[in-house]
Amino acid sequence: MAEKDLYIAALEKKLAELSGIEVDQIKKNQLANASSEACSIREMAEYVEGIQVKQAGQVITGQVNPQVAAVFAHIKAELGEERGAHSLPPLKYDYSALEPHICTTIMQIHHTKHHQGYINNLKAAVEKLAEAEKANDIAAINALFPAMKFNGGGHLNHTIFWTNMAPEAGGEPTGDIAEAINKDFGSFQSFKEKFSGVSVAVKGSGWGWLGYCPKDDKLAIASCQNQDPLQLTHGLVPLLGLDVWEHAYYLQYKNLRADYVKAFFNVINWANVNERYEVARKAAGH
């Protein structure tokens, strides 16, 4: 059986166990939702393969999109990875450690299949980028930007996401981040309601974020579509990210995104968020 078929069969089995609903009754909806990211990853790989690099020596016009380099700069800042040297970061906890809030099967598939898929695509895009740079094909370089943003963002966003969670975590934050939340949102409860509302309201696939604005020295809540990086999209340094693609919760929470967002607050690693906040403020000179 093909890997895709095995993946779908595993999803169907787990969904039946969790919901007690006959898979045939909801199969069409399940496949559309739970397989959406796998399809997006595959489509982006095909997009990269389809970009044709011109032969060296042809007349070149235009300018390279500066956001191409920015994607790799953000990845290096988070992971220390040079362009093209990308790998799956190990989790600091077991796949089962976030139970019962996020189930083991979701964590296994999410980390080893989806995140790895972004990395594979990113490395393929980097190879094509190097070819385009050698040929000085600016059009091809810029055409690769959507792949850099999608796959590079997927790698970056997920890396932050894994560190934002921890077993036996959750509750209310302490330290500088707690003071900043109270200052910028009025209270932790007010922050929680706003963050939850923005995350639940993401149309289609995307992320809910708590970020830091270096210019204003303030916290802000924002959402991003698909795998768009927060800093590239809104100019905010990412502190806390919540993946609301349906693959991140569908097996366990089905279409009840609000329940998943509520459960997420039980696994937030506030020590990590606080550390990110302190580093971001220091880098901004505050």
Rank of each mutant, 00 (worst) to 15 (best):
Ile106Cys: 10
Lys149Cys: 01
Asn164Ala: 04
Ala97Leu: 08
Asn182Thr: 01
Pro173Leu: 05
Phe185Lys: 04
Ser196Ile: 14
Gly153Ala: 09
Ile119His: 02
Lys123Trp: 06
His111Arg: 06
Lys183Met: 14
Ala147Asn: 12
Ala169His: 05
Trp162Ala: 01
Ala147Tyr: 05
Ala180Gly: 15
His86Glu: 05
Phe195Ser: 03
Ala166His: 08
His86Tyr: 13
Met165Val: 11
Arg83Val: 12
Ile106Gly: 04
Asn136Ile: 10
Ala166Pro: 06
Cys103Pro: 01
Leu122Gly: 09
Glu81Leu: 08
Glu133Gly: 07
Glu82Ser: 15
Glu82Leu: 12
Pro173Asn: 13
Ser196Glu: 14
Ala147Lys: 02
Phe191Arg: 06
Ala85Trp: 07
Leu122Asp: 10
Thr159Glu: 05
His158Leu: 06
Ile160Pro: 02
Tyr118Gln: 01
Glu131His: 12
Asp176Pro: 11
Phe191Lys: 08
Asp137Trp: 10
Ala166Asp: 08
His86Arg: 02
Ala180Met: 08
Gly80Trp: 00
His115Arg: 05
Pro100Gln: 07
Glu81Phe: 05
Phe188Lys: 11
Val126Ser: 03
Gly170Cys: 08
Thr105Arg: 03
Ala140Pro: 11
Ile181Val: 04
His114Met: 07
Ile160Ala: 00
Lys194Glu: 15
Lys183Trp: 11
Lys194Ala: 13
Lys183Arg: 15
Thr174Ala: 13
Thr159Asn: 02
Lys192Asp: 07
Lys134Ala: 15
Ser96Cys: 04
His114Arg: 04
Leu129Ser: 06
Ala124Phe: 04
His111Asp: 03
Thr159Pro: 04
Thr104Ala: 05
Lys113His: 15
Asn151Val: 03
Gly84Pro: 02
Ala140Glu: 14
Gly152Ser: 07
Ala143Asp: 12
Asn121Lys: 08
Gly152Ile: 08
Glu81Ile: 07
Glu131Pro: 05
Gly171Ser: 12
Glu193Met: 12
Asn142Lys: 05
Leu144Trp: 13
Gly170Trp: 03
Lys113Glu: 15
Lys92Thr: 08
Thr174Lys: 07
Cys103Thr: 15
Ile138Gln: 13
His110Thr: 10
Glu193Thr: 13
Glu168Gln: 09
Gly197Pro: 00
Leu122Arg: 07
Leu98Gly: 01
Leu122Gln: 01
Asn142Ala: 07
Tyr93Asp: 02
His114Phe: 04
Phe145Ala: 07
Tyr95Gly: 02
Thr159Val: 06
Leu144Pro: 01
Tyr95Ile: 09
Leu88Ala: 05
Ala139Phe: 15
Ala125Pro: 09
Thr112Gln: 06
Gln108Met: 12
Leu88Glu: 01
Leu156Asn: 08
His115Trp: 06
Gly117Glu: 02
Leu98Pro: 01
Gly171Gln: 07
Ala130Leu: 13
Phe150Glu: 11
Pro167Met: 00
Ala169Lys: 05
Gln189Trp: 02
Thr105Leu: 13
